[in-house]
Design a protein around this nucleic acid. Structure first.
Lengths: 115, 115
DNA sequence: CTAATCTACAACCGAATGGTTGTAGATCTA
DNA sequence: TAGATCTACAACCATTCGGTTGTAGATTAG
C-alpha cells in the first residue's frame, strides 16, 4: 500500500491526487490523524461515498493512511509523500537555477569586453 | 492566458498538468525556451497533435508559454508557476511542522514529571 | 513556383474521473 | 436486543482525458 512503483507512476498518482481542492483540503485537515472518513464527509457538500473515494485516491498516492478504530477509519496525512512531491518540483526549479547560473557565467566572462 | 483564476482552480490546473510524465518531461526540456512544438514531438512516441495538446494543457496551467518564430512555436517553461506549486506544498508541510512543534511543547512542559 | 515543414483544429474513440444511489456488514449505544 | 452509525462496494451516469486520423492554412527552403 505504500511506495513500490516506478517513480514516474508514483509522481503521476501524487500530482493527480493533489489536483482536486477537496482532496487538498482533506490532506490539510488530516494532519492530526484524528478525523474519520465520516467526520471528514460532514465538512463537504458531497456524499460520504464520494469522500470515501477521495480518501482512496489519496491513499493510493501515499498522501494519507487509514487506521481502523472500531467502526471508523481514521485518516492521517503522510508528510513524507508531500515532501517527495516538493522535491520533484525542487528538481525542476534547479534546472532553472542552473540555466541562470550559466547565463551569469557568460556575462562575467564578457565583462570589460562589451561592444 | 496567464493567471487570473480563483487560486483553487489555478492549483487544480497546475497539479493536473504535472500529473503526466510526458508533460513533466516537456517542462524539463523547455527550460531553455529554444524548442518548438514539433521539435518536442520528435522526442516522444506519440503524434505531434498529442504533444500539441500536452503543451496546451501546460500553457493553461501557466507552466509554459509559447512564442511564435516564423512557422514554429517555441516553448518556454515558466519558473514562477513551478515555484507557486512548490509553495502550495510548503504550506502543507508547514502544517505538519506546526503540529510537531506543538508536540515538542507538550513534551517539554512534561519534563521531569514523567510517570 | 513548388514542395516540405509546422501549426491548428475538428471529429472520433476508449478509459478514467467524480459524482450519485442502493444494499449490506460491523460496530457501537440505549 | 434493536436502532443508529460507519464503512464497503457495486452499479450507473456524464464529463474529461489522452490518444488517434484527417484536413487545411502559414511559412520556409530548393
Amino acid at each position: 500500500m505504500v511506495v513500490d512503483l516506478p517513480t514516474g507512476e508514483q509522481a503521476d498518482l501524487i500530482f493527480r491526487a493533489l489536483a482536486d481542492s477537496t482532496r487538498r483540503d482533506i490532506v490539510r485537515r488530516s494532519t492530526g490523524g484524528d478525523l474519520s472518513v465520516s467526520a471528514l464527509a460532514r465538512e463537504y457538500p458531497i456524499s460520504t461515498t464520494a469522500v470515501q473515494k477521495h480518501v482512496a485516491v489519496l491513499e493510493r498516492a501515499g498522501l494519507v493512511e487509514r487506521t481502523r478504530r472500531g467502526r471508523e477509519q481514521l485518516v492521517q496525512s503522510r508528510i513524507e509523500t508531500i515532501t517527495r512531491a516538493r522535491e520533484l518540483l525542487d528538481e525542476l526549479e534547479a534546472l532553472w537555477r542552473d540555466r541562470l547560473d550559466r547565463i551569469d557565467e557568460l556575462v562575467d566572462s564578457n565583462e570589460g569586453a562589451e561592444q
